[in-house]
Amino acid sequence: MYIKIKNYTKLIEHKQILHDINLSLESGHIYGLKGKNGSGKTMLMRAICGLILPTSGEININGDILGTQISFPKSIGALIESPGFIDAYSGFKNLKLLAEIKNIISAQDIADTMLSLRLDPYDKKKFKKYSLGMKQKLGIAAAIMEKPDIIILDEPINALDEESVQIVKELLISLKNDGKLILISCHDKDELEFLSDQIYEIESGEIKNFYKVDAI
């Protein structure tokens, strides 16, 4: 699995959001995005998900051009901004509803994913009564439960306590070792460098710098 982004530029209402982005991403790696709020990190993630289309340039995913040959990546899971869960449903019921769209995983797969994040699939508590950390972990569960080839997580450890941060870090490393292509953003420099094989610094919609991090 690979993603090749070539000369990707996006204008919205004549304002440049992303400018001449060039990236090559491969399976079995975690790539980090570093930048201030409004730098373009989230918009780049949305672009890779097929949620926005380029003004110029292209995104090639395993030989298919996003937006022309395919509308969305064939195997992707993402947590970008706040996920749209139903307040009156339990965590498990929310995930089951999402899983029914593709119908490629079982109820046990959903339960196993929740358990991997220390969420109780049998808890009847409604989503609206979840803590911020529980909501965040449910969003991660939604992104990974179908075992996608590409995983995109915007601030995955936001609102998590120390124990949950460690759980998520171990899970992401395990997914990388399983050959997943993972792209994350994180405001915590140390955590981003701990997880990432390579980090791209974004400023005003442009890649200003990149550097490799020692392998874990």
Rank of each mutant, 00 (worst) to 15 (best):
D178V: 05
V168D: 01
L138F: 13
D178H: 13
I144K: 00
N177E: 15
K137L: 05
Q136K: 05
E170T: 11
A142N: 09
E155D: 04
K180P: 08
I167W: 00
I144F: 08
K169S: 12
A142W: 08
D120I: 06
P121Y: 15
E162T: 13
R118T: 12
P148E: 10
I173V: 15
K126F: 13
N177P: 00
E163F: 05
D149I: 02
K128V: 14
I167H: 03
K135A: 15
L153H: 12
K124Y: 01
L138P: 08
Q166R: 06
L138M: 08
M134V: 09
E146I: 08
V168A: 09
L181Q: 02
G179D: 08
L160A: 03
D149P: 04
S164Y: 12
K176H: 11
G139P: 10
L138V: 09
I173F: 14
K180T: 05
M134A: 03
D161I: 04
K124A: 13
D149C: 00
K125Y: 07
S174H: 06
I152C: 10
P156I: 03
P156T: 00
P121A: 14
P156S: 13
L119M: 12
K180E: 09
L172Q: 04
G179A: 10
I144G: 14
D154P: 00
K176D: 05
K169P: 11
Q166P: 02
L175F: 00
D154T: 15
E163R: 14
K169N: 05
Q166Y: 06
N177C: 12
K129P: 00
L160P: 04
M134G: 12
Q166K: 01
P121H: 07
K125R: 15
A159S: 14
L171P: 01
Q136C: 11
K125W: 01
E162F: 09
D120Y: 01
G179V: 14
I140W: 11
I140M: 12
L132G: 06
L172A: 05
K180N: 11
D154H: 14
D123I: 08
G139T: 11
Q166W: 09
I157V: 03
K176W: 03
N158G: 04
I157P: 00
L181E: 08
D120S: 04
L153V: 02
G133F: 00
M145A: 10
K126I: 10
P121E: 14
L172T: 05
P121I: 00
N177Q: 13
K147T: 01
K176F: 13
I152N: 13
A159G: 03
E162Y: 04
I167T: 06
N177S: 15
K128T: 10
A142L: 11
E163L: 03
M145Q: 01
N177F: 07
E146V: 10
K135E: 06
P121T: 02
Q136A: 10
I151F: 07
V165P: 02
M145E: 04
K128N: 08
